[in-house]
């Protein structure tokens, strides 16, 4: 039963990340996603200190705010101080992450977080943390949280599909017909930070990046249809979760690390064998054509 719980939770995390990742890589914002996933750390610690628990509205609000703050700082340093974008991203996220680690050490007694957990989470503990209402067990808590997050993200993409699509592919046209590109930009970034925070316990701040980028990149090499890309990305994420889990059991290693590794393996396979954009098919086309 524990296997099922862990695999399901991982698949939920992977699907949420994969959906958002598709938008990120097409907007050339993969590294902003990376930055946000690091930068939420101080937000998590502060929210933890205020509310005293890990799953609370405070934490989700805090996450949303810190995501927006990160995005804002990156743009501020780039636009107002004329710092090049790559440096602006690098300076911002390392600073926030360092603040987070220092906060953890400062309040080591009060915050139930440790540095390793920050890096690669501990999804193996998912089945232990059971949701209990009226002495009745309802299964792992993380399962409910991640289902809710995935549902929220699907809803977000469903409702804002046109706006997200247009601001991604043709921002000039989008603003011409009155869609605020910066509003959707910030909404998307809030969604990314929300997902990062929710996934934090299971896969850690850094391996979220693997699930944000790798499945979406895989899907991008398989299709030119955006809706199909969203579906394929989810499937690739789920495949990485399932195979990653069993590899981890086999090697007796970190599950989250192994999921990231398998996401990379799936990407490499696609890179070589994709019928449309793979290396082999490109080579064949080049020799035939």
């Amino acid at each position: 039963m524990n296997d099922i719980y862990i695999i399901t939770t991982a698949s939920l995390v992977a699907s949420s990340c994969a959906l958002l990742g598709c938008f990120l890589i097409l907007r050339k914002m993969a590294m902003v996603g990376d930055a946000i996933s690091h930068a939420v750390l101080p937000g998590i610690v502060i929210a933890f200190l205020i509310s005293g628990s890990r799953d609370s509205i405070t934490m989700l609000i805090g996450a949303g705010l810190i995501g927006i703050l990160t995005t804002f700082l990156i743009e501020f340093f780039h636009k107002k101080a004329k710092l090049q974008t790559d440096a602006s991203i690098g300076v911002t996220f390392t600073w926030l992450f360092a603040v987070g680690v220092v906060l953890i050490s400062l309040f080591a007694g009060k915050v139930d977080l440790d540095q390793d957990c920050v890096l690669y989470g501990e999804i193996a503990y998912v089945p232990i943390d059971i949701l209990i209402i009226n002495n009745e067990s309802f299964g792992p808590r993380a399962l409910y949280i991640m289902s809710a997050i995935l549902f929220a993200i699907i809803l977000f993409i469903y409702i804002g599909y046109k706006e997200l699509f247009l601001t991604t592919f043709d921002p000039a046209y989008a603003s011409a017909i009155g869609i605020s590109t910066s509003l959707w930009h910030y909404l998307l970034m809030s969604a990314v930070s929300l997902t990062t925070v929710a996934s934090f316990e299971s896969v850690g701040a850094i391996l979220v990046v693997a699930l944000l980028i790798a499945p979406a990149a895989t899907a991008y090499l398989l299709t030119d249809n955006f809706k199909l890309m969203l579906v394929i990305a989810c499937l690739a994420g789920i495949a990485a979760s399932v195979t990653g889990y069993y590899v981890a059991v086999w090697l007796d290693s970190s599950i989250a690390g192994s999921i990231a590794m398998m996401a990379g393996v799936i990407f490499t396979f696609t890179l070589i064998f994709s019928p449309s954009h793979g290396l082999i098919s490109k080579r064949l086309k080049a020799t035939i054509g």
């Binding site: 990376d34 391996l207 990046v209 693997a210 690390g257 990231a260 996401a263 990379g264």
Partner: peptide, 15 residues
């Protein structure tokens, strides 16, 4: 960059 960074790191964590 994001892909390589996270996948290599994942492999590192596994090891």
């Amino acid at each position: 960059i994001g892909l390589v960074l996270s996948v290599f790191f994942g492999i590192g964590i596994v090891m």
